[in-house]
Design a protein around this nucleic acid. Structure first.
Lengths: 158, 158
DNA sequence: CGGTATTTATTCAAATTTCAACTTAAATGG
DNA sequence: CCATTTAAGTTGAAATTTGAATAAATACCG
């Protein structure tokens, strides 16, 4: 099963799996976004909150946050500006590197996180985790981790 | 393992799998987008081309295309306008329902599709399919299909 | 040290996406 | 039939995202 220039097409099984994966990715994002709407947060907002919540002193360098959330610096900068306006985070200067800035979780941001997280987790369960058996969960992780590893590497050497 | 208001947190295993899935989704989209760049197409463009290519007479009603690609009608409308300007598709009136329009693949769109598809498929292989054993592929499909089904249903009754 | 290259982060403009308002046509139901 | 509701699709403005250009500070190297 070859294309004219030698590339191999996908078998039916491969194609089915590929499309299912794509569909799940998209619908899941879409659904989680929707489940956050009542709290006035986008998924992007939430992701920033998670990262800052888990970080030492509830703060991270802009660069690191951009890397962690897979966003461009420019995009993160805008994103943080918006969240700053919403009172969720603030920027703070970095002593040791005067080019640098920290994004810091505000008290309100932290309160918001604590309030919203349980609902978000419930949504993740409802739409993903609880639909998988322990065995399926395990094989999913086993299958996807190498893919993640590959993609991280590929992205890196861009 | 309960939150204050009764929601169950994720176990380490669950969390790891969840995050891996998220990461793969994102990096994969990102990578495929990048692999299409040399051809001057976005992933959205490509997806439209795929759908039209597989459709009867290389044409689809705007609504159906929007549904198939999980986009809003508005977004699709803009998208098609852009692709029309690029010469990849054209709009055509629908006889039987005079509100309706078809998006139709142009010759150039079809040529483009035939030219680009092998490269795209190769990318899908390189970054996903070929990293999975047949067994993993199978279990992935088995695990994700019910999730897809659930999400389709959930989305529907929105 | 002094100059050049990198890194960090922001900004502006252009492209894309979203959202609500609108138009036109078809379906529904007294 | 007519009136109303629903469906198909577009439009324009606002919000977000992208990408190149910029500014400022640090790192590197002869």
């Amino acid at each position: 099963m070859e294309t004219e220039n030698g590339a191999r097409w996908l078998s039916d099984e491969e194609q089915r799996t590929w499309r299912t994966h794509l569909e799940v990715s998209r619908l899941l994002t879409y659904q989680l976004e929707r489940d956050l709407q009542p709290f006035g947060l986008t998924y992007n907002d939430y992701e920033i909150l998670v990262n800052l919540s888990e970080a030492e002193d509830h703060q991270m360098r802009m660069s690191d946050l951009a890397r962690a959330t897979l966003q461009s610096k420019s995009r993160l900068s805008h994103q943080i500006t918006r969240m700053e306006n919403a009172g969720l985070v603030r920027r703070e200067n970095c002593e040791s590197d005067r080019r640098g800035l920290f994004a810091v979780l505000t008290d309100y941001g932290w309160e918001t996180m604590k309030r919203v997280a349980p609902h978000h987790v419930a949504a993740v369960r409802e739409h993903f985790i609880d639909l998988l058996s322990p065995r399926e969960l395990e094989s999913l992780q086993a299958a996807l981790e190498p893919v993640a590893k590959h993609l991280r590497a590929t992205r890196g050497r861009a």
